[in-house]
């Protein structure tokens, strides 16, 4: 037996297995990343997440300052506290990144997402869908005799809940924007 406890000629053992298994709790964080609005910047940010094995739960991006040429990327990600810290450090050191804010730890923040739901059905189902939409303050933005398109804004959880209710009532299609978020107060 060698000191590695691998019998010569019999190893099914991988010598490359270096991952440390002691994992910590997984947290969900919403990050706001202010970047130069240049081609390739979004690809660089997304490439960081895929290349280093970080998760993206939701991602939105749009220019927020035309004269300053700045875009805001809102990304919801999950990971252990150490991984979240790494993500922030990795984002901060990127050349086109100006600021990184962790809205989950910086204080209270508002998070909103917009979604469109197409629901098709007749009779009871149709009436029930309309009634629930009212409770959720969803607007009807398109209707035919057999379908509705609802527009709903809210937290991702609210949108998930609305989706769950629509499913048995003839849910056909969903389009979601992903989360936009801002810290509360000034």
């Amino acid at each position: 037996m060698s000191p590695l406890n691998i019998k010569k000629g019999s190893t099914s053992h991988s010598a490359y297995d270096l991952r440390d298994p002691h994992a910590e709790v997984i947290e969900v964080h919403t990050l706001a990343v202010l970047v130069d609005n240049e081609s390739g910047v979004l690809a660089r940010v997304i490439g960081l997440f895929s290349g280093r094995g970080y998760n993206i739960e939701s991602l939105t991006v749009a220019e927020v300052d035309r004269t300053g040429h700045r875009s805001r990327i809102t990304v919801v990600t999950t990971g252990t506290p150490q991984v979240i810290d790494q993500i922030k450090a990795q984002l901060s050191r990127m050349v086109p990144v100006h600021e990184v804010h962790d809205l989950t730890v910086d204080g209270p923040a508002v998070q909103r997402e917009l979604a469109l739901f197409k629901v098709a059905g007749k009779g009871e189902h149709r009436i029930e869908a309309l009634r629930l939409a009212e409770i959720f303050r969803a607007n009807v933005v398109d209707s035919t005799l057999e379908s509705f398109v609802f527009e709903i804004t809210g937290t991702p959880e609210k949108i998930d809940a609305f989706g769950d209710l629509m499913r048995p009532l003839g849910l056909r299609e969903i389009a979601r924007t992903g989360v936009a978020a801002l810290a509360r107060g000034v």
Partner: peptide, 10 residues
């Protein structure tokens, strides 16, 4: 060397 030490001298 790795094959000798970790892959059973194959």
């Amino acid at each position: 060397q790795w094959q000798e030490l970790l892959h059973g001298e194959r």
